[in-house]
């Protein structure tokens, strides 16, 4: 089952795309596991995800901690801490 990945701010810049479709293996069960798996896709992914403590995430447009389970997720977004207002 495929996932839509969205990237924002410097994560988007390092990955080199704002959106991509991915199909992680069954062993990838959390956002943290997904980040680790995605890191192998390209040098850009590796650079974007090198420091997970600087990353935040949302599953299906809700903020989640990085240890959140992916089960049933359709859209996962990875981004730096938010800085609006």
């Amino acid at each position: 089952m495929g996932l839509t990945m969205l990237y924002f701010a410097w994560v988007r810049e390092r990955v080199g795309a704002g959106e991509e479709r991915v199909d992680p293996p069954e062993g990838v069960q959390t956002v943290a596991g997904l980040i680790e798996w995605l890191s192998a896709r390209s040098d850009g992914h590796a650079a974007a995800f090198a420091a997970p403590s600087r990353l935040r995430a949302a599953i299906d447009q809700r903020f989640v901690p990085l240890d959140a389970a992916l089960n049933g997720a359709r859209e996962v977004a990875i981004f730096p801490p938010v800085t609006g207002g």
């Binding site: 924002f8 903020f63 977004a77 981004f79 730096p80 938010v82 800085t83 609006g84 207002g85």
Partner: peptide, 20 residues
């Protein structure tokens, strides 16, 4: 709003840009 809404700021300076 500052912590709960997904916005990101980037500053433009004479020498380039930087994410806030």
């Amino acid at each position: 709003l500052k912590t709960d809404a997904p916005f990101w700021k980037r500053e433009w300076l004479a020498g380039g840009t930087r994410w806030v």
